[in-house]
Measured scan of single mutants.
Amino acid sequence: NQASVVANQLIPINTALTLVMMRSEVVTPVGIPAEDIPRLVGMQVNRAVPLGTTLMPDMVKGYA
């Protein structure tokens, strides 16, 4: 099963992502693939992302 990117903490709206904010986990539904974590660093979320939430492509500005 493919691992997805999951929020390791509450990520406030418009926050630029850092490695410490994300972890990989096998979840359903599948979100952004864990191998894209390096690409996500520095990108901003367009909404608040609660701890444990799977990051979906539409949550990250410029990802989709």
Rank of each mutant, 00 (worst) to 15 (best):
V30Y: 08
A64K: 14
N8A: 15
M21I: 04
D58E: 09
N1H: 06
P33K: 06
I37N: 03
Y63W: 13
A16M: 12
V5P: 02
T15G: 04
L55W: 00
M56F: 06
V41W: 04
S24G: 12
N46T: 10
V45W: 00
K61Y: 10
M22L: 10
T54V: 05
N8R: 14
T53W: 10
Q44C: 02
Q2P: 15
Q9G: 08
E25L: 03
I13S: 08
A3W: 02
V26F: 05
P38F: 09
M43I: 08
L19N: 06
V60M: 14
T28S: 07
M43V: 07
A34R: 03
P57F: 03
R23P: 01
M43N: 15
K61M: 08
N14T: 05
V26A: 11
M59E: 06
M56V: 12
M59K: 01
A34Y: 07
V26L: 14
V20P: 08
P50S: 12
I11S: 00
M21T: 07
A7H: 01
L19C: 10
R23F: 09
I37T: 10
E35M: 07
V27L: 04
V5Q: 01
V30E: 15
P29R: 02
P29W: 05
R23L: 12
D36K: 12
T53N: 09
D58M: 07
A7M: 08
A3G: 11
A34T: 10
Q9S: 12
S4A: 12
V45Q: 01
G42I: 01
V30A: 08
P33D: 11
V45H: 00
V41Y: 06
V41G: 10
V27H: 07
V45K: 00
K61A: 05
I13P: 05
A3N: 13
N8E: 12
I37F: 07
V20Y: 09
A64R: 06
Y63V: 04
Q2V: 12
P50T: 15
P57D: 03
D36H: 06
V49Y: 01
M56I: 11
K61D: 07
V49E: 01
D36M: 10
T15P: 01
L10H: 13
N1P: 15
Y63Q: 06
P50L: 14
L19Q: 10
T18C: 10
P38Y: 05
R47A: 14
N14R: 03
M21F: 12
T53C: 02
Q2W: 06
G42R: 05
N1W: 08
N8C: 03
A64P: 12
I13A: 05
T53Y: 12
R39P: 03
A7L: 09
P29N: 12
Y63N: 11
T54M: 07
T18Y: 03
V49M: 12
N1L: 11
P57E: 05
G42T: 10
T18Q: 04
N46C: 15
A16L: 15
Q44H: 04
E25N: 08
P38N: 14
M59D: 07
G62C: 15
V27W: 03
E25M: 03
A3L: 09
G31H: 02
L40D: 00
L10N: 04
S24W: 11
S24R: 03
T28V: 11
L17C: 02
A34M: 09
G31F: 02
Y63T: 07
R23G: 11
S4H: 02
T28R: 01
Y63S: 06
R47C: 08
D58A: 09
V26S: 14
Q2R: 02
P29V: 09
I13F: 09
A34H: 12
L40E: 00
E25Q: 05
G31I: 02
L19V: 10
R39T: 04
K61C: 14
Q44W: 10
P50E: 15
I13Y: 04
E35G: 09
P29H: 11
P12Y: 04
L19H: 13
